[in-house]
């Protein structure tokens, strides 16, 4: 069984996003970038499945401009077998519908039965790409998973989904896509020898323009704004008494 892991390069999640007023977009020049944390968890899960003897091959796929290669090298260093780099001329900030179409073309070509990906990317916070990809491929979908267990015969998978009312367990027939939540596993760090080894692992480049996919955005970003937070007094208090008095004065109690 082949596993495909689509991954995304994003602004480091612990870095404050800043905007460029001129271009009305998020300013990423000289920013610290990282693999989306949910994607790291997806890579880890794929590697665990492979280590348990259930997968023949793990393939990371990422779409973006040249710098995206760093993120794919990172996945290779964590342990995936090979990488596919879908190259765009410039940073395009592609939307989930387009990403879904690109990924679906790659997955059809590779013939993968299992796709493991993050439930959302911490930049655009859409939480859509996995679900949309499942619709385009007509694969089963398990979203927001915190547990994953493949059946003995490799034909289905049982997943636990973190939902607003608790935890739902479902059984998915393969081919399937799962989108992972944070509590699924603890991603490993790439060791130095593995970082060295990753340099010689196969990394195939596919030009986006060669895929014949309409990439024009359906949703245009007209402008962005730092939301900032309300100015708050940070008034010091020292007892429950004071707290409840202050809350009353603020009209909250």
């Amino acid at each position: 069984m082949k596993i495909i892991i689509p991954i995304k390069r994003v602004l480091d999640p612990f870095t404050q996003a800043r905007i460029d007023k001129q271009t009305q977009s998020v300013d990423l020049t000289n920013s610290k970038m990282a693999m989306n944390p949910f994607c790291e968890i997806a890579v880890e899960e794929a590697l665990k499945i492979q280590e348990s003897g259930h997968a023949t091959e793990t393939i990371a796929v990422s779409i973006g401009a040249d710098k995206t290669i760093d993120t794919l090298r990172n996945a290779l260093a964590m342990g995936v077998d090979r990488a596919i780099f879908v190259r765009t001329e410039t940073e395009l900030n592609l939307q989930p519908l387009t990403l879904g179409k690109i990924l679906s073309a790659i997955i059809k070509k590779e013939g993968a039965d299992l796709v493991i990906m993050g439930k959302q990317a911490v930049d655009n916070d859409n939480n859509q790409t996995g679900q949309m990809l499942s619709g385009l491929l007509d694969y089963s979908i398990g979203t927001f998973i915190s547990k994953f267990k493949l059946s003995e015969d490799n034909n289905s998978v049982e997943v636990c989904r973190e939902i607003d009312t608790g935890i739902e367990t479902r059984n998915l027939k393969l081919p399937a896509i799962v989108t992972v939540d944070l509590r699924l596993n603890e991603p490993r760090y790439a060791s130095l020898p593995n970082i060295m080894k990753a340099r010689s692992k196969p990394l195939e480049t596919v030009e986006l323009s060669s895929l014949d996919i309409d990439t024009s955005p359906r949703v245009k970003v007209l402008g962005v704004e730092e939301s900032g937070s309300k100015d708050r007094a940070a008034k010091q208090i020292n007892s429950a008494n004071e707290l409840f008095e202050e809350l009353k004065q603020l009209g909250a109690m």
Binding site: L97, D125, N127
Partner: peptide, 23 residues
């Protein structure tokens, strides 16, 4: 916005060739 709708609406988007807008 909820895990219920986020599980379903993006897939509807794919079936209708629409880019949904979240949150």
């Amino acid at each position: 916005s909820s895990t219920f709708s986020k599980n379903i609406l993006p897939r509807v988007g794919a079936l209708l060739d629409v880019q949904p807008i979240s949150d």
